[in-house]
Design a protein around this nucleic acid. Structure first.
Lengths: 120, 120
DNA sequence: TTTCATACTATAGTTTATGATAGCACTATA
DNA sequence: TATAGTGCTATCATAAACTATAGTATGAAA
């Protein structure tokens, strides 16, 4: 016996899961800012700490580890003195380019919408 | 005196802000699941509560209010007995279609990547 | 009169995310 | 010997997000 409600429900779950999978990797206050800052080239820890407003060492360290585990960030230690650690986006991270681009466009639009609404 | 570091920094901030603007609207455990469930048609409160796994009444209520304030969800009260409240996506919410689509594609890919990695 | 369905809301508590502050190990330079 | 720069980590505190449980109001039906 076919029950459209259940079919639709399954379909709905099938859409939700990948989206939440994606958000799990990207969520939180800092992950996308970190990735975006690396789209402009590889950086050292202290450079990023300076460049990303208000981030603490603790969060930067933690999130970089997360991103590394998800294959989005590469960490290279140069045994210079003092030791320099270079972070960069992986090739895989560039599969996020579309995601970031659409989010960015939507964000710009949304802000415009509400700024214009204020004027009315 | 031109300082490339500062230019790049500004550029970087200019990318970050719209993305975080977007994520502010969409973040949290429930907002996208709610929107996605409404892409399959308008729903009543209790229908959504049943359809979205594990959501509590409190969160559903709260998030629907948030989404309504952001112009993404429309709420219509039918004065039948008992009272029925119908929720639906606004036209504006459909500007999220691309965002959801790219997130979804990325999520599917990411899961595939890690499932395949397990096999190796 | 009790129960059921509608759509919520209130209160309290737990869990997770983030912040503030400090300190470590290394070595060069003053 | 003291200080400074590198890249962190540890501890504790706070804030934000979420959960659990119960209760509200309406009116119909049993």
């Amino acid at each position: 016996m076919k029950d459209i409600t259940h079919l639709e429900h399954g379909q709905c779950l099938g859409m939700i899961r990948p989206v939440t999978d994606a958000l799990d990797v990207l969520s939180g206050k800092w992950k996308l800012p970190i990735i975006i800052s690396l789209t402009f080239g590889s950086k050292r820890f202290s450079e990023m700490a300076r460049e990303i407003p208000k981030i603490t060492d603790r969060m930067l360290s933690k999130e970089l580890r997360d991103l590394e585990m998800n294959g989005l960030v590469q960490r290279v230690v140069h045994d210079s003195i003092p030791v320099v650690v270079e972070y960069s986006m992986t090739e895989y991270a560039h599969t996020l380019d579309n995601v970031i681009q659409t989010l960015r466009e939507w964000g710009i639009n949304h802000r415009k919408r509400y700024t214009e609404a204020d004027k009315v």
